[in-house]
Nucleic acid binder design. Structure first.
Length: 552
RNA sequence: GCGCCUGUAGCUCAGCUGGAUAGAGCAGCGGACUUCUAAUCCGCAGGCCGCAGGUUCGAGUCCUGCCAGGCGUACCA
């Protein structure tokens, strides 16, 4: 709808320039918005104000000229008024709203789709938790954010891939093996020492018990035992992570192993590549890359004095591989504590000629858990944290996902577990789902009373005349541009604000007016309106990865 | 010290590329179920948008400085 109005305005300006009503000039950027105040029309534009300076005329005068010469062949606009300092407020004809509702009903699940993505290949890498422990709340937030972003990007016409990068080598995996080994030894000798950088969580004992039942560790030399436990523990944890994510309705297309970078020789190739560019140098017994030439504030170590590569080295190689796999755009979701890492990785990529804006990092602020009125400090090493699985078992996938998505990712999230557990109005997810269930219930009643919902809305819609009814359709009209904005800004949380608004408009309407009445035509019109709301709610919930229950 | 993020109602937070009188939920107070689901609705109350300057027709939004909180500043992962 905004697009149609924008076209009318552009045509109007063309005409005004051609006929000399206005001085010829390049078209300025202007905004068409949906005003909060109903007196300000269905749509408003600041066009006249943006022209004023160059035209050397007052905004209100210019608005006057534009309104007088509006090019509106399809009778889209009912009336146009000047408001405030020079806004033009448009009221559009009721037929336009009927058309829009028909469109929603015809397009169903496809209403709101757009082609912003142009089928471009895009990758979202998220969660990528180390396979050394169960997923916790922070991973849950990343999982919900990443997955929903993917659903929306797909809806906007991107060719989306979800990827999970597995850090399956290195010191931390070894620490996992050592921790399991130590717990296993402690079964028979409680005084056996536990490594200082070991993982404290109870799951380590469980792993030790489970593995010891299948495998005889007694005959193994300590180093072999630890190596074996590292491997088995890692695989077991990864299995659990996959399962937890699947239960959370998050399914990855690719699970990319860090160890593959070694076995395929990619990492060596990467280092040679950097060397060829003359960006490597030796210092203090380590091998460095000169990232400072590309915006980083200092150079970084690639190979440590002890001969091992740093994670930074594999990260460079990994991202070069993403580039070679042909993704036009890559989004990484990282915890906010990694922000210092961004310039570094981008610098290394720029050294290989990859544009700076190719890699988009969404920094997600951390999740703070509140329980019983106090903050619970979480830490994986100490073993004190709530796992994603526990949370989902407690409050369900829908409530958990909704809470994770309901805040901008740049804000820290206070997750109050006592509140989310309550299945009442405290959690807006139920408010939205209830509107859906309510509509389904109305449809069941309509079916019982043999009132059909017309296949072709057509003239039936003329029964919709109330302000509240048109307001509902207007709310539906906002959905496509909302999806576009979310796609551009990578801000899926905005959908969690739109849906309660739509549901609220419906709840209010429902409480004041009967959908099903003696008047059959009116009933059908209102059923169609309800159908439109139902389609949008279901659509929106599904983009968030939430269910739309028919009964509550 | 430097860098990133945050500061809006009692609490948790929205506020779309600067737009008209700053919004919602919860908490508080008062109302509405013989009628399609009360997980709902209606009403009341609640604000130096951290502080101070600047940019302009117009600033919660942009710029500068300050204050407060979180995170980072590794040959850790």
């Amino acid at each position: 709808m905004k697009n149609r109005l924008a076209k009318i305005l552009r045509d109007t300006l063309d005409l005004c320039f051609r006929e000399g009503y206005l001085k010829k000039m390049p078209l300025p950027e202007f905004v068409i918005e949906v005003p909060n105040n109903p007196d300000h029309g269905h749509f408003a534009t600041n066009l006249a104000m943006t022209l004023a300076g160059e035209q050397k005329n007052s905004p209100r005068n210019i608005a006057e000229i534009i309104i007088r010469h509006l090019v509106d062949n399809d009778h889209f606009i009912l009336k146009a008024e000047i408001g405030g300092a020079g806004f033009i407020n448009f009221f559009i004809t009721i037929e336009q709203w009927y058309d829009l509702l028909s469109q929603v009903i015809t397009l169903k699940d496809d209403y709101g789709r757009n082609c912003l993505g142009k089928k471009e290949k895009i990758m979202v890498e998220f969660v990528s938790a180390n396979p050394t422990g169960p997923l916790h709340l922070g991973h849950g937030r990343g999982a919900a954010l990443g997955d929903t972003l993917c659903r929306i990007l797909d809806f906007s016409g991107y060719d989306v891939r979800r990827e999970f990068y597995i850090n399956d080598t290195g010191q931390q995996v070894k620490a996992l093996g050592e921790s399991i080994y130590s717990r296993w030894r402690q079964f028979s000798d409680p005084s056996y020492p536990f490594p200082s950088d070991g993982y404290q969580g109870d799951y380590i004992q469980e792993l030790a018990t489970e593995i010891a039942q299948k495998i005889t560790l007694e005959n193994l030399d300590i180093h072999d035992a630890i190596d074996l436990l590292s491997e088995l523990g890692r695989d077991k944890m990864l299995e659990e992570i996959k399962e937890d994510l699947a239960n959370f309705r998050v399914n990855f297309d690719f699970w990319y192993k860090e160890s593959d970078l070694y076995s395929s020789g990619k990492i060596d190739h990467t280092i040679k590549l950097i060397e060829k560019r003359g960006l490597l140098f030796q210092k203090d017994g380590a091998l460095w890359i000169r990232t400072s030439s590309f915006g980083d504030d200092k150079d970084r170590v690639i190979r440590k004095k002890d001969g091992n590569l740093t994670y930074f080295a594999t990260d460079i190689s990994y991202h070069l591989d993403k580039w070679e796999r042909g993704f036009r755009k890559v989004i990484n979701i990282w915890g906010a504590d990694h922000h210092g890492y961004i310039t570094r990785v981008k610098a290394a990529l720029m050294a290989e000629g990859i544009p700076e804006d190719w890699l988009n990092v969404l920094l997600m602020q951390l999740v703070n858990l509140w329980e019983g009125g106090a903050e619970v400090k979480m830490s994986k090493r100490s073993g004190r944290y709530v796992t994603l699985k526990e949370l989902v078992d407690d409050v369900g996938v829908d409530a958990a996902r909704f809470v994770f998505l309901s805040k901008d990712h740049t804000s820290p999230l206070d997750f109050n577990i006592d509140l989310v557990k309550r299945k009442d109005s405290e959690n807006p997810v139920y408010y939205v789902q209830y509107a859906h269930a309510r509509i389904c219930s109305i449809f069941r009643k309509a079916a019982n009373e043999n009132i059909s919902i017309p296949e072709q809305p057509g003239s039936t819609l003329q029964g919709l005349v109330l302000d509240e009814e048109i307001a509902l359709v207007r709310k539906m009209a906002e959905f496509p541009s909302l999806i576009e904005e979310i796609t551009r800004e990578l801000a899926p949380h905005r959908l969690t604000y739109y849906l309660p608004e739509l549901a609220g408009s419906f709840h209010r309407y429902y409480n004041r007016h009967r959908i099903i009445s003696e008047d059959k035509n009116l009933s059908q019109a209102r059923l169609l309106l309800s159908l439109g709301v139902k389609i949008l709610i279901k659509n929106g919930l599904s983009l968030l990865g939430l269910s739309a229950p028919e009964i509550m």
